[in-house]
């Protein structure tokens, strides 16, 4: 089998003290983690436990860490800024808690955002419409983000993450700003993507998200642990 989608070995993240005299913050300590291709992993953790930081490390957005981070066969420490940008562009989709749509662009243009960079995205316009249709917003392409509900905005953000058809999706509390019902819609979208073979890593502190995942882990005091009772596909063999 090819290399796993994600492999962490001895990964640590330390924030220097914010003011002198205070001890530095060891936010992530000696993390080891393997995520298989096609796996749907949920990582739970309380606010401030380092979930976002972990996602930023995985996406090459934060290069300041120790240990080894391998994503889709690439050793992130060995990549240049340009190569990391190219990796994010083609291989990784990001979804954020606060959607992060650009207010000056229409929904469709927001979905097209990856096409503005790098080599662009082949057949971007058609794919963007498909992606919008896929998240159920075929008729909202011209709407500005301000005219959309929270659930719609998050679905536009997901469509944006899907535009380049990346094999890996990283989502940071994607339902955190949504009510239960709209959150449910987003979760079932993730489930569908998973069924189509995409690798998903979603950090959350909501149990309903975790329920959709193959495997759930918990980030606590800088360390990752399998959630008690959670099935583990790699260990079940």
């Amino acid at each position: 089998m090819s290399e796993p989608a994600i492999r962490l070995a001895g990964v640590g993240k330390r924030y220097p003290p914010r003011e002198p005299g205070v001890a530095p913050l060891d936010l992530l300590i000696e993390l080891d983690l393997t995520v298989a291709r096609g796996e749907f992993l949920a990582i739970e953790g309380q606010s401030g436990s380092g979930k976002s930081t972990l996602l930023h490390l995985l996406g090459g957005l934060d290069r300041d860490f120790i240990g080894e981070v391998r994503v889709l066969g690439c050793d992130l420490s060995a990549l240049s800024d340009q190569e990391l940008a190219a990796l994010r562009h083609a291989q990784i989709g990001f979804v954020f808690q606060s959607f992060n749509l650009l207010p000056g662009l229409s929904a469709l243009e927001n979905v097209l955002l990856p096409d503005f960079f790098g080599e662009g995205v082949p057949d971007a316009e058609r794919r963007a419409r498909e992606a919008l249709a896929r998240v159920g917003l075929a008729d909202k392409g011209q709407s500005p983000p301000a005219a959309l509900s929270g659930g719609e905005r998050q679905r536009v953000a997901i469509a944006r993450a899907l535009l380049a058809r990346p094999p890996l999706l990283l989502a940071d509390e994607p339902t955190g700003n949504l009510d239960a019902q709209t959150g449910e819609g987003v979760i079932s979208l993730f489930r569908e993507l998973h069924q189509e073979g995409m690798t998903l890593l979603i950090v959350t502190h909501e149990a309903r998200v975790s329920h959709a995942a193959d495997r759930v882990m918990v980030l606590r005091e800088g360390r990752l642990a399998a959630e008690p009772g959670s099935k583990h596909p790699l260990e079940s063999e």
Partner: peptide, 16 residues
């Protein structure tokens, strides 16, 4: 600032 972070997340380089 945050939007610039988003651009980087979808694949923009520093130059972009």
């Amino acid at each position: 600032t945050r939007e610039i972070g988003v651009l980087r997340a979808v694949g923009a380089t520093r130059g972009d």
